[in-house]
Amino acid sequence: MKKTKILIATAILGIATFVAIAADHIDAPAVQGGTSDITDFYAFRGENTSNLVLVANVQGLLTPGNTAAASFDERVLLEFNIDTDGDNIEDLVIQATPRDGKMYFFGPTGPTSTGLNSTIVSTTTNAGVVDITNYGETAMIEEFAGMKFFAGPRDDPFFFDFNKYTEIIAGDATGFANPGDDTFAGSNVLSVVVEVPKSMIGGSGTINTWVESKRKQ
């Protein structure tokens, strides 16, 4: 049944073209306050040291009061890019896109094209789906073919004194205070998490990885 749902989703999503847009933690004018605003990206070794964990957070500064009403934008594709040969061009992608309360994942697989434009890689045999965890619910995690998936609200883990940073940029301060103010304390983000066996990524030595948000055109 889960496989059938994934195949149905690819039929719906695969024809869409997604185009990259600027994104950063609340300070990119093109996406500030928008549903495609990437707050942070994390990549680290899993508890199972044979796995790699990739985390993309979007829609920062969600207060507890409005987190319950927040949702992933079905027009936005999150794409984890993996460069295995050091040329800074993605050799593999893992795509995540929401639909009807679920997050669908495709990859790791070779992209249909590199750069700013993407389409859903609907032909890949590496795919998964997970129900999006609602605010206040126990995290729902699904596993497919050795990969694990999660999508839903989490506490923003990023520590940064954003107000002091803007003062420094404006020339009104010469440095950060110690310890400074945690601008993001008490706020939430929407997280997309995928844990993937290193054997599915291939390559050797160092890999480069980054994340993009792309809006449906």
Rank of each mutant, 00 (worst) to 15 (best):
M1V: 12
K3M: 14
L7F: 12
I15C: 15
F18R: 06
A22D: 15
A23D: 05
A23V: 03
H25Q: 11
A28Y: 11
V31K: 08
G34E: 11
G34N: 04
T35R: 11
D37W: 10
Y42E: 13
R45G: 09
G46P: 06
T49A: 11
S50F: 10
L52F: 02
L54Q: 07
Q59P: 04
L61N: 11
T63H: 03
N66P: 02
N66R: 09
A69P: 00
A70Q: 02
F72I: 07
D73I: 08
R75L: 04
L78D: 09
E79F: 02
E79W: 07
I82E: 08
D83Q: 05
T84H: 00
D87P: 05
D87M: 08
Q95G: 11
R99Y: 14
D100R: 14
G101R: 06
K102G: 06
G107Y: 06
G110N: 13
G110D: 13
T112G: 15
S113W: 01
T114E: 07
L116P: 13
V121S: 13
V121Y: 09
S122N: 09
T123Y: 13
T123N: 15
A127N: 10
A127Q: 14
V130Y: 08
D131V: 10
D131R: 15
N134C: 11
T138H: 13
M140I: 14
E142C: 10
E143L: 05
E143V: 10
E143H: 06
F144G: 05
F144E: 10
F150D: 05
D156T: 04
P157A: 00
F158P: 00
F159D: 06
F160K: 09
F162K: 14
K164T: 12
K164C: 02
A170W: 00
D172A: 11
A173D: 03
A173T: 01
T174R: 00
G175W: 05
N178D: 13
G180W: 09
D181W: 02
D181C: 06
D181F: 01
D182A: 08
A185R: 08
G186V: 01
G186E: 00
L190N: 01
L190S: 00
S191P: 07
V194S: 07
V196F: 00
P197H: 08
K198L: 15
K198D: 11
K198A: 14
I201G: 06
G202M: 03
I207L: 12
I207G: 01
I207P: 00
W210K: 07
E212V: 11
E212H: 14
K214Q: 11
R215S: 12
K216V: 05
K216F: 10
